[in-house]
Write a protein that binds this DNA or RNA. Structure first.
Lengths: 343, 343
DNA sequence: TTGTACGCGTTATCAC
DNA sequence: GTGATAACGCGTACAA
């Protein structure tokens, strides 16, 4: 009186292997998990059976029994932006090296809190033991906080790329590097095209840009807001082009710099002769812009590696595994900056 | 005599919900899966209990019982290339819309067969019901074929972005669009900078480029090989610059075009006055290159959507769900092409 | 070093 | 419309 008809075409299970190898399922389990305490030739027999049957551990069953899934989740904004993608590479590598798989949930650019929570939920329900937040979330929302902090109901570990002290790239340092470089070249002030205001990085860079100018006794001009896209950089470029004495610009991403420089060129201002530009990221194409971009490099892959490493350590309850990659920004000087013209 | 000490801090289970709502677990299951056949107020009671307890379905348990995981796997090369990333966006969207999650396994650029198989295995072991192959795999290898075809041991569905007839972007059409445009402008021949030879696309485009030229009675010049990177495009550019009568180039990606154009400029050849360039992809920065790139657009997001849609249909055993997005390439004319100089 | 027995949390089946 | 019960395939505890 079986309440479910047995499937005859089902995948080979531990029992099948055990039977074929003439051992108990427990021994098969021990061999598969490589935990030792099995005589060499017993193991060999098991492995032979595994091979013959094409047996593979059933992840769902294993995870149900052990309570572990070895899955990481990542939440990013539309993944075709260079930073998200490069981050992913580092995360992937580290996860794979430690036997974890990674599931990604992408949310739209200015996703609502609901969309974000939905992504979060999907990842958790699916069994992610830890989640990397690669998005700029405002932790003010109570609903978000309820999920972002661990509760009895949501028990995955969390790590946030713009909040976790050990991971954060020093955004103020990025702005300082850029502004000091420009000032050092002899420019009287530095204009600033910011990224999307929803991002923590944006505010941090803007503040540091402002502070650095003040430290030099310079009153900061107004920020020109943009949103990371080349299009927004182009619009900012038209604004800058209309300001005759703007000779130096700190723009918050390489992609925006492409747009900005084009707008400048169209307005008859040359870079770097008329205006110097330093941007942020050092994407692969930065060296091939016209002119090649002077930019502050952000080590996205290393950030990804560091985040994954930390998260896995958290999950496994130890302090650190392997060496934490450094995440220091670095100024790469190319051809989009020069001293201001004599007048 | 419990062989395992009961954890008191464990997450709420179906049983807890059932108890609180005063129903059976089966009813909870029915409510959670939304399959109906539950009286409205019973459902309400269950939902209230779910809410109070913060209950969430345990994916591993559900999948063990049902045999379904609703997980998709994607194998791509190091995901910071624009095409992989954009593909991912489309896949994500479609997967999420259909209740699937997606796990990604990245392999290095010229990954060995072993590395590829390793990625494949990880995804399958983890329970992927279908796998999207976004990498250029040579199906010649027996080991690969054994995995790539379904066997009793490996039972996930497969779909390959460069093999599955319904998905493939017509690579020959891309090359034809580019070459015809250049020839139509009056150029006598068209040089070709190819992508990485490991990619199916590369061969298909090269062949179509050659054929198109022959159709016009032109003997094709030698292919200049490259590997998708801007650096390789730069090297190809130096080669082209050394050929005085080269006035038109079909280069297989926008990123290479950036490198190519820079090399040309450095050699004193201007684009498009001295040499016209048409590339492929239409990445976000293409419109902001100097000059803006004339390029053949590949609809990566749509390709991703189409792939996910097809794969899900395969998994669920029906023919098609929703409308298949079109994946036709499209020539975008900007400023990197012009008629050849009079001489 | 190896085997036995149970339980992980859910869904499927059938009876009511 | 609802409930009882048997799987699903594995890891864990403990005995041998």
């Amino acid at each position: 009186m079986s309440p479910r008809r047995p499937r005859e075409d089902r995948a080979p299970s531990q029992v099948d292997v055990a039977k074929l190898a003439g051992v108990s399922t427990q021994t098969v389990s021990r061999v598969m998990s490589g935990q030792g305490n099995v005589r060499a030739d017993t193991a060999r027999r098991v492995l032979a059976a595994v091979d013959e049957l094409g047996y593979r551990v059933h992840a769902a069953a294993a995870s149900l029994a052990s309570g572990r899934t070895r899955q990481l989740g990542v939440i990013v904004v539309s993944t075709d932006r260079y930073s998200s993608a490069a981050l992913g590479v580092g995360i992937q590598q580290t996860a794979a090296a430690n036997g974890y798989t990674v599931s990604t949930a992408a949310v739209a650019d200015h996703a609502s809190v609901d969309a974000f929570l939905e992504a979060f939920d999907r990842l958790e329900r699916q069994g992610a033991e830890g989640i990397i937040l690669g998005v700029p979330i405002e932790l003010e929302s109570p609903a978000l906080r309820a999920r972002t902090e661990r509760t009895p109901a949501t028990r995955s570990e969390r790590i946030s790329l713009d909040q976790d002290a050990a991971l954060v790239v020093d955004q103020a340092a990025i702005a300082r590097l850029a502004v000091e470089h420009l000032l050092g070249l002899g420019h009287e002030t530095v204009w600033h095209v910011s990224g999307d205001v929803y991002w923590t990085e944006t505010r941090q860079r803007s503040e540091a840009w402002e502070q650095t100018l003040r430290d030099h006794g310079i009153t900061p001009p107004p920020v020109i807001p943009a949103d990371w896209t080349p299009e927004s950089g182009y619009r900012a470029g038209r604004t800058i082009a209309a300001i005759p004495d703007a000779t130096a610009v700190f723009v918050s991403s390489d992609e925006m710099a492409f747009g900005l420089i084009r707008a400048l060129h169209e307005a008859g201002r040359s870079v770097p002769e008329d205006v110097s530009v330093v941007s942020v990221d050092d994407i692969a194409l930065a060296a091939y812009a016209s002119p090649a971009l002077t930019t502050v490099r952000q080590p996205f892959e290393d950030m990804g590696r560091a985040a994954a490493l930390r998260l896995i350590a958290q999950i496994e309850g130890h302090e650190a595994i392997g060496e934490m990659p450094s995440t220091d920004p670095q100024l790469i000087i190319r051809s989009s900056t020069a001293p201001p013209r004599e007048r």
